[in-house]
């Protein structure tokens, strides 16, 4: 009972502090890609399995980050962000469904 409550409290604390603790605990990082003026900046990023890619859309139009292999399809509404956690090693080209000329690549290492 006490142990259970303690564990629960630890969980809650961990959840509350998640933003701070998670990188240290899992060694996972968040890699930010700016979406600005109809470009992914930088267009190529390298990540490790478990990392999160976050796209920050600074444009006043909607975009998407959509994997060429359909592995992910992240909506990026105007002035909003979206993210995906990469789970497999490999090279993943992606594009914007609304503006197919917008292209980027995520290279994931083990």
């Amino acid at each position: 009972m006490t142990a259970g409550r303690g564990r629960r409290r630890a969980c809650v604390l961990a959840a509350l502090a998640g933003v701070v603790l998670l990188p240290a605990m899992a060694a996972a990082e968040t890699i930010t890609v700016q979406v600005t003026k109809f470009s992914f900046v930088p267009a190529s990023v390298t990540a490790k399995v478990g990392d999160t890619i976050e796209w920050v859309n600074a444009d006043f139009v909607d975009h998407t980050a959509t994997a060429a292999n359909k592995g992910f399809d992240v909506k990026l509404p105007a002035n909003k962000s979206g993210s995906v956690t990469v789970k497999k090693a490999g090279t993943f080209p992606y594009f914007c469904r609304f503006h197919p000329m917008m292209k980027g690549t995520i290279t994931v290492k083990k």
């Binding site: 006043f60 139009v61 909607d62 105007a78 469904r97 609304f98 503006h99």
Partner: peptide, 17 residues
């Protein structure tokens, strides 16, 4: 159709701005 929807979405966003 997808292209046309892209046009509506973007041009409306520009008009709003």
């Amino acid at each position: 159709q997808d292209f046309a929807r892209d046009m509506i979405r973007d041009h409306e966003a520009v008009n709003k701005q």
